[in-house]
Design a protein around this nucleic acid. Structure first.
Length: 533
RNA sequence: UCCGCGAUAGCUCAACGGUAGAGCAGCCGGCUGUUAACCGGCGGGUUCCUAGUUCGAAUCUAGGUCGCGGAGCCA
């Protein structure tokens, strides 16, 4: 008997590298390390498992390996490939559906989340538990299946697994399990957010979301950026953007008071504290030291927004670059978005095909259009001219100095240009203090990237690096420069031109997948009045 | 927060002041290398809550709750 300590393995589908410490007693351990093709290694083990291991015993004693059934623990994704034919495998997953044949056997559609598709298990009537277990497998039940991968004689799949063993791990009573073998509305699935990842759509969303997250890290790493973890709790109540969630350990029933007001000097941080609405200011500090950085983390807005595009808790990516001007910033934003799209199309082909067929027929057209065309650069002033000359009647009036509304942005990107558009140089009165003032004195170096279908997906700017002008802008907006002392230090000591932007992860996933509601592209959405699960 | 729409079987919906139904799924049976399988049968309801109008309310009225869409705020 051998106690397995650790196992390392390479990517599935390629030769497997196993590192195994197998101690017979105490410190008498053996590390095996080598590149072994599938089929050579008859182990189905997990760390901590105690089991007999003839192959390892053979290695230790120099004997040849015994002949016995060879089982590789593999994913559904692996066995659906034609190359898997002939392999003996162990699969673990959840039953999607079962179809019985009076020929005396059953088909089981098995999914383990590794990919969009299921693998068809052929379970013969000869299995000892066929009548008792297999014929009562319900949607949602968890099973272990051993068997041989064979080419499928019927249409619909390249391979199927002929089971030699089917073990039920956890039943899923059909009369109670909410997920049925039929389409459900996203609205209903939101009420069972803990089960919805088991559906086609939400599995696909989760895999695309993972791929996008990885693309973000890959892209920035390759470009020489450093990932900086900016704080989630902030004690500066003056970040400007949006309503804040308060963080406090005071007793809400009886907070300490001074002069009738809550005395935050007795609170955990000795002052009022909040959940972050942006890591940008801290990001600037690190950009002004490391050159190019990005943040990627959760962000919180306490706004009472009830729309398919807003969450109270969402994930945001905020790159910040020293020695970048607005032009550099736009170029980065464009290549960044294009990279995310092309990675997803290449590496999530099956899931993207699902979205195109079942969620949004336009998704490929839209993404390919974005990939193959340069993003247009249009100044705010030009955009206002276009809107004024469009002959359209607007619910909100268009005039230089007015903020652009959803209807204006949608017109520009969806009807007028039919392409992603970067709008830049907005009136200074519309934008926050940290954006760099242009020589005209009227506009600031802001940019918004608008995409068809979603609207604003990126907002950014070149930052104001001149101390006196920055302080003036703060006062202009009713802020106290003293409260931003550390931020102003970045301009007092070795100030540099720099720029950055923010990208909403969930809005990016909406854009990529064609999903319509932001609550359906985050695992457990938090919205006003709703923090279930 | 404002405007609009909605809430009926596990799910999706119908019933438009007069006995609450269908499809799907579930259960049972039949049939089949099946694949959103198909065919037959069966069970399944506090019509969101509270109050009101009425001989009678799923239906009309008022208030509330929750959900969805549009707008604002923004990513």
């Amino acid at each position: 008997m051998i106690k397995v300590d650790t196992i390392g393995s390479s990517q599935q589908g390629s030769p497997t590298r196993l590192v195994m410490h197998a101690g017979r007693e105490g410190r008498d351990s053996l590390q095996l390390c080598g590149h072994l093709a599938y089929g050579q290694w008859p182990l189905v083990v997990t760390p901590g498992a105690v089991q007999s291991c003839p192959a390892l015993a053979a290695r230790q004693t120099g004997q040849t390996q015994p002949e016995e059934p060879i089982m590789d623990k593999v994913s559904v994704s692996d066995v659906r490939r034609a190359e898997a034919v002939g392999r003996q495998v162990r699969l673990q997953g959840w039953v999607r559906t079962r179809r019985d044949s009076k020929g005396g056997f059953s088909f089981i559609e098995l999914n383990d989340g590794s990919c969009q598709g299921n693998v068809q298990i052929v379970a013969p009537g000869e299995l000892p538990n066929y009548e008792a277990v297999v014929k009562h497998l319900h949607t949602g039940a968890s099973v272990v299946v051993d068997g041989e991968v064979k080419a499928s004689p019927a249409k619909g799949q390249a391979t199927e697994v002929h089971a030699t063993n089917v073990e039920l791990l956890g039943d899923s009573p059909a009369e109670a399990y909410p997920l049925q073998k039929k389409g459900h509305t996203f609205e209903f699935l939101r009420t069972i957010a803990h089960l919805r990842p088991r559906t086609n759509t939400f599995g696909a969303v989760a895999r695309v979301r993972h791929r996008v997250s990885k693309s973000i890290h890959d892209f920035f790493h390759e470009q020489g950026f450093f990932y900086v973890h900016t704080p989630i709790i902030t004690a500066s109540d003056c970040e400007g953007a949006g309503a804040l969630f308060r963080v406090s350990t005071l007793d809400p029933e009886a907070p300490p008071k001074v002069d009738g007001k809550v005395d935050f000097a007795h609170d955990f941080f000795h002052k009022p504290a909040y959940l972050t609405v942006s890591g940008q200011l801290q990001g600037e500090a690190f950009a002004c030291a490391l050159g190019k950085i990005y943040t990627f983390g959760p962000t919180f807005r306490a706004e009472n927004s009830n729309t398919p595009r807003h969450l109270a808790e969402f994930w945001m990516i905020e790159p910040e670059m020293a020695f970048f001007d607005l032009t550099d910033n736009m170029a980065l934003a464009e290549s960044f978005l294009k990279r995310i799209i092309s990675d997803a199309l290449r590496d999530c082909a099956e899931d993207m095909k699902f979205f195109a067929e079942r969620v949004d027929k336009e998704v490929f057209t839209r993404l390919e259009n974005v990939l193959s065309n340069p993003f247009l650069r249009v100044s705010y002033t030009e955009a206002v001219d276009i809107l004024l000359k469009s002959g359209k009647t607007w619910e909100y009036p268009v005039a230089w100095g007015n903020d652009l509304q959803s209807e204006h942005e949608r017109f520009l990107t969806e009807q007028h240009f039919k392409s992603p558009v970067i709008l830049y140089d907005y009136p200074r009165t519309l934008k926050p203090f940290y954006m760099r003032v242009n020589d005209d004195g009227k506009t600031v170096r802001a940019m918004d990237v608008l995409v068809p279908g979603v609207g604003e997906i990126i907002g950014g700017s070149q930052r104001e690096e001149r101390l006196d002008i920055l302080e003036g802008r703060m006062r202009e907006q009713g802020l106290h420069p003293e409260a931003y002392n550390w931020y102003l230090d970045l301009r007092r000591y070795g100030t540099v031109p720099h720029a950055g932007f923010g990208l909403g992860l969930e809005r990016t996933i909406l854009f990529l997948t064609g999903m319509a509601n932001i609550r359906d592209v985050i695992p457990f959405p938090r919205t006003p009045g709703s923090a279930e699960f």
